[in-house]
């Protein structure tokens, strides 16, 4: 089963490789990982999407907690949470297709952030399903390039991490 795990870490030298090394060394898989500083410059927050049965996920969480630089681990599969991902898509946009692409952009509430006579670069955020749907809608036009951030997640409600 798929899990989205948020990990609050000390913002220290090498911490990313400690986490990624833990996953590779123990044969856990990472589907996506995103990381950036939090409001406290001394900590970073990672969101890791991983897969495994109950026992493996339990081990992943315990092993993450065991790392000295890890402050907190939260498994979002176990609680109500919101999840988002950002995607940039560079798509072919020759004259006859330009209007159609813009309609898709509009329907998905995405934005064109760069354009040339031959292409659009589109930005959109959404949950995974929406991001995948956008890609599928644009695929027939000819996608030149995509970049996705991987998922980030946050628990619902007033409580912080």
């Amino acid at each position: 089963m798929r899990h989205t795990i948020s990990v609050l870490v000390e913002n220290e030298f090498g911490v990313l490789s400690r986490i990624s090394g833990l996953f590779s060394g123990r044969g856990f898989n990472i589907e996506s990982l995103s990381v950036a500083e939090t409001i406290d410059p001394e900590t970073s927050r990672m969101t890791i999407v991983t897969r495994g049965n109950e026992q493996i996920i339990e081990q992943i969480k315990k092993q993450l907690n065991k790392l000295i630089n890890v402050i907190k681990v939260v498994d979002h599969a176990m609680e109500q949470s919101v999840e988002r991902e950002l995607i940039l898509v560079k798509v072919n946009a020759e004259s006859e297709m330009r209007a159609e692409i813009l309609r898709v952009v509009d329907i998905f509430r995405a934005r064109v952030i760069d354009l040339t006579p031959k292409s659009y670069t589109i930005e959109m955020t959404g949950d995974e399903g929406k991001v995948t749907a956008l890609v599928e809608m644009l695929r027939p036009m000819g996608i030149k390039e995509i970049a996705r951030t991987g998922k980030i997640a946050m628990g619902r409600g007033a409580k912080g991490l």
Partner: peptide, 9 residues
């Protein structure tokens, strides 16, 4: 880097 996986820290 080399000892990261075989040290506690």
């Amino acid at each position: 880097g080399i000892t990261r996986p075989c040290t506690k820290h």
